[in-house]
Design a protein around this nucleic acid. Structure first.
Lengths: 136, 136
DNA sequence: ATGTAAATCGTAATGATTATGAATTAGAAA
DNA sequence: TTTCTAATTCATAATCATTACGATTTACAT
C-alpha cells in the first residue's frame, strides 16, 4: 500500500484530507514495522503538541476498516502497519528485536478445512516470532 | 492436566495448598473453555466476597509459569485454560459462540524452518476461530 | 506449639483504549 | 470568494484490564 492509494481510498469513502491524517500515514509509509498508538503520539507530539489520543485512535480505527492498515496484538497492545500490497493471502514473521516483518510464503490454512469438517472457520491467526537475520 | 497433577507440581515447586488456589483450580477443572480473570472473580466472589484481584492474577501467573494453565489473548483480554494433557505439540480451534476448544491434529510449524533459513524462531501462534458443530 | 516465609486482603496505581462535548476546519455549493 | 455544514480535532474524563503495595493472615516445617 502506498500513500497515493491510501488517499484514494479515503477520498472515495468520503473522508477529508487533513494534516493529522497526512502525518500518521507518512509515519506508516516510512516504517516497515508495526507501530502502536503510543509510538505515533510520541513522535507527532513534537510537531503538534496538541495532538490528542482521540485523533490517533479514531484514525487508526478508520484506516483499519478501510483496509489501509492491518492490526495485530503484541504484548497486550494493538499494533498497526501498512496493509501489504501482495494480493496473495499470507502471514508474517515478526522480529522481536528490530520489529521488522517478513512475509511467509505459506498458509497453513489450506489443509485445515478438511481436518475440521462440521466446523465453520471464521478467522485465524498464524504468526511467528523470533529474530531476523540482521538481529542474530 | 488433572487437579492431582496440578497440586503435585505446586508442591514440588514449594507452593502451599490454599483454599483460594483450590477454588481457582476447580473452576478450570470443570471447564473446557478459556476463562478470564474476571470470569473467575465473579464466580469466586460469591463464596469469598473478599477475594481480591491480586490473588487471582498472582495465581494465574504462577499457574502459567508452572505449566498448569495455558494462556492466550482473546479480544484484548488474557484467557486461561487447563494445560492440555496431550504430549504431542498441537493447536486449537476456539468456538466463538460457546468458547469450547478442539485440538487440531496438525502443526504448520513443521514446514516453517526450511522456509525461513537464517531466521531464529522463538515462538508462534496458530489459532483458528469460528463455530463448532454444536453452535452452527 | 511456634516461627517464618508465603499468601491474601483491601485498595490504589498504571497503562491502554474509548467516549464526550465544545471548538475548529476542510471542502462543497452559492 | 464567502458561506455553510458535516467532518474532524482538541482537551479531558471515563472505562477496563492488569499490576503493585503495605498490612494482615495463614500454611506448614521444625
Amino acid at each position: 500500500m502506498n500513500i497515493t492509494r491510501a488517499w484514494e481510498i479515503l477520498k472515495n469513502s468520503g473522508y477529508k484530507k487533513t494534516d493529522k491524517r497526512e502525518l500518521i500515514l507518512n509515519m506508516f509509509d516510512e516504517s516497515e514495522k508495526y507501530l502502536t498508538a503510543r509510538d505515533l503520539l510520541t513522535v507527532l507530539k513534537k510537531d503538534y503538541p496538541g495532538m490528542s489520543f482521540d485523533t490517533i485512535y479514531r484514525n487508526l480505527t478508520t484506516f483499519v476498516e478501510l483496509g489501509i492498515l492491518e492490526e495485530t496484538e503484541l504484548n497486550g497492545e494493538k499494533n498497526f502497519r501498512m496493509q501489504c500490497e501482495s494480493e496473495h493471502h499470507h502471514h508474517h514473521f515478526i522480529c522481536m528485536d528490530c520489529g521488522n516483518v517478513k512475509e511467509i510464503p505459506v498458509c497453513p490454512m489450506e489443509m485445515m478445512s478438511e481436518k475440521l469438517p462440521d466446523y465453520t472457520i471464521e478467522s485465524h491467526k498464524f504468526e511467528i516470532y523470533g529474530k531476523c537475520p540482521n538481529c542474530q
